[in-house]
Structures are given as C-alpha cells and as structure tokens.
Amino acid sequence: MFSVEGKTAFITGGTSGIGLAVAERFVRQGAKVFIAGRRDAGDLAAGIGATAVQLDVANGDLFAHVLDVVEEDVGKIHILINNAGMENVGQTLVEQAISELDPAVDVNLKGVVHGLKYGPAHMADGGSIINTSSLAANIGLPTYGFYAATKAAVLSLTRTAALELAPRNIRVNAVCPGSIRTAMLPDDHPEVKLTETLCPMGRIGETDDLLGLYQFLASGASAYISGQAINVDGGVSAGFGYGVLGLAETAVS
C-alpha cells in the first residue's frame, strides 16, 4: 500500500541507527537507496543493497556536490531524508560549555538546512522530504538544552520548507522519535529507565517502531500531508503512564 518501489531515496545519517534501519526497509521495498555518512560505508551499503556516499552534512558545498553526483548517476531523487544527528546532553545550560553548541548546530541544524537548501533542485516534483527531529523538540527536559534547541529549529524549518515547496507538490514533514534503542541510546543510558517509567507503554522504542511512518510519509499515500511533525514516543507526549504513579500494570476493562 505505502509503496516506495522504483523510487530513489537519499538518506543522511544512513550508516547507523534510524537511518540505516529506514534504508534497509526501503531497499527491501524496491527503492534505490543512497546512504550518506562521514565514514566509508561501502561494505555496509553493499550488504543491504544500497549505495554509500561520504558526506559531512555540516559542509554545504560538499552536500551540494554529492547531490550533483547522485543525480548524474541515477537522475532526480524522490525521497530525501535529513536524518543525520548527534546527541549533546547531560549538562545544564549553566554547566555546558558554549563550545559544545557548535557541533550540535553543525550536524543537527545545518545538516537539515543544507538538505533543504540544496536537495530540492535534485528532486522530482511530487517528492517527499522527511526531517528527523525529536520528541525533545516538543517537551522540556533538563540537560537537553542545546540538543532540544537544534531539534526544535528543525520543526520550524520543516514548516517553512513545506510552504515554499508546495507549488512543486514536494511534501516536507518531520518525524519526532522518543527514546529509541540505537548506538546513541544503549541499555545503560539513564534515559532508558526514565522512559520505562514515564512511557505509557512502559518501554523504549525500537527502530522497527519508526519504519512504518517513514515509509508512509515517503509514499504517495501521504500526498496531502505536509508541514507536520509526528511524535513516535509510545504515548509520552499524551501524558504519563502508570509507572509514574508507582502502580503496577493496570488493565482497564
């Protein structure tokens, strides 16, 4: 139903975590997929049937050049996923060094700006852009200040780009994952236990929990959806689970 067959997708941050999981799903569904990351991931890409390109998303000139090369190779792309991101949490705004703001801005914010600036010229009309933001963009969390600020900016950019690209029927939406098990969130991360307590579903998410939404937004089935930010958080943004009240699992009949 939510077909991406025959489409070309370009995914930043595609060599690990959410981006890699999405790439694997799209390849299985018949898409031509390019995964972009700072490291040489040729073997990784070959193993899933994708193509790897090296890219530092903070470098706008390089971003534009890589897209030129991709278009020369396969023509216009249909799906652009601005997914590259870095975690920058654990200290309060008073404690955190100002110098630590720069890398968060470079990757989480400039990386999306560059995708939105240079990507559309290489996209077919009617395509889809999906920006990976975060639940932290929508709720306050102590010690997440720099990270949350960059992810909130992604939502603003998403809305602006959706308006500007609407005449070409290019849709722009954002996915806001809650706590998802990846290399950035190992089992011993303090956020895991916090989420297990707060989340109505009582667990952190897996990358598989996100794939259906990315595929839906990439497909023609979402042709009238643009400028939206969708939380995938096990219900955290709706309210707190029974764990906050210290209650055991409660069945409501």
Rank of each mutant, 00 (worst) to 15 (best):
G49M: 10
M1T: 13
F63E: 00
D187S: 12
V113H: 14
E164C: 03
L55K: 04
E71Y: 00
G75H: 14
A162W: 10
G202N: 06
I77Y: 01
F146Y: 15
H65F: 02
I35V: 13
S3N: 02
A41F: 09
G235L: 06
L155F: 04
I81Q: 07
R25W: 01
D61A: 10
D188K: 13
V232F: 07
L101P: 04
L157A: 02
C199Y: 02
C176D: 10
N88Q: 13
T150E: 06
V69N: 06
Q215K: 04
D40Q: 06
G246M: 01
L141A: 07
A174N: 08
Q228E: 15
L157M: 14
G19P: 07
T207D: 07
A36T: 09
L135W: 11
V172Y: 12
V192G: 01
T150A: 04
T132H: 06
N59S: 09
D102G: 02
A84F: 09
A41R: 04
V70Q: 03
K151S: 11
G115P: 15
V70S: 02
G234Y: 10
A97T: 08
A36L: 14
I18N: 05
A166P: 10
A121V: 00
V252F: 15
L135R: 13
S133F: 08
K7C: 07
I130N: 09
G127F: 10
R25T: 08
S3M: 03
L198R: 10
S226C: 02
L245E: 12
